[in-house]
Amino acid sequence: MRLILRAWRRNAYLYRRIMGQNLRAALEYQSDFLLSVGSAMLTQVLGLVFLGVVFSRIPTINGWGFWQIVFIYASIFLTEGFASLFFEGTWRIGYFVNHGELDRILLRPLSPAVQLLSSAIGMNGIGNLLVGGVMIGESLTHVHMVWTPGKILFSVILLLSGIVIRTSINFASNCSAFWVKNAGNAVPFMVHSISEFAKYPLTIYAPALQALVGIVVPYAFIGYVPAGYVFSTSGMAWIAVLCPLVALYCAAVAGLILRTGLRQYESTGN
């Protein structure tokens, strides 16, 4: 037990060290930094404009008001922001595998998962965090609700679960590079674009799509389910209890896929 704890502490320390260096390097490319933060913010604000335009003509969609949908929408972007800023490395797995750079990672006495996760920093995440955060804040002030310490605490847990779910899905889908051996592996991109469905209330979709987003690739637990809890939508509060469990499940699956992929890489090389 103590050994495991020590390993985790070491991993966390080295992750911080490497990310610190990444951050310094990223800040050197000032125009890139500003551009990526700016374009991330722009994308989101224009998404918000879209919602605004739609809601200027209708009051609710399936019982969800403008600010409630903004909350769901922003949750998707906020968790994306965390995933980009801290775990952008997931998107480089394909590069590592295809260019034989994974060798280098395997030759260091540090967990490959830590090295992969810390291999890049996505400064655009800052843009997503900023706009997503402001949008969530705004949505919470526009909808009347009662906050208790317990509710605040559980909301934070929901946010953390969302980040874990998001990152794990990114990680797992990018691990497809171990099997799809070409530079244009589109699987991670495809899986990522499934999150498109998670920007709106799940109830608008056909059952098959609800199953896809709710169970197969559980993006619904990032925005929609937490929104149901936070806004006390009838019958949804208890589903939110599942969020942390779904997060653990996703992380475990991602870890398993990485392990299988590494075994495959070790037997075929590159």
Binding site: L14, R17, N22, A25
Partner: peptide
């Protein structure tokens, strides 16, 4: 590491090892 000074790479490796 491509984007960080050589000395920082070495000091990272010190920590990794």
């Amino acid at each position: 590491w491509w984007d960080i000074p050589v000395i920082e790479t070495l000091s990272l490796l010190r920590d990794i090892h």
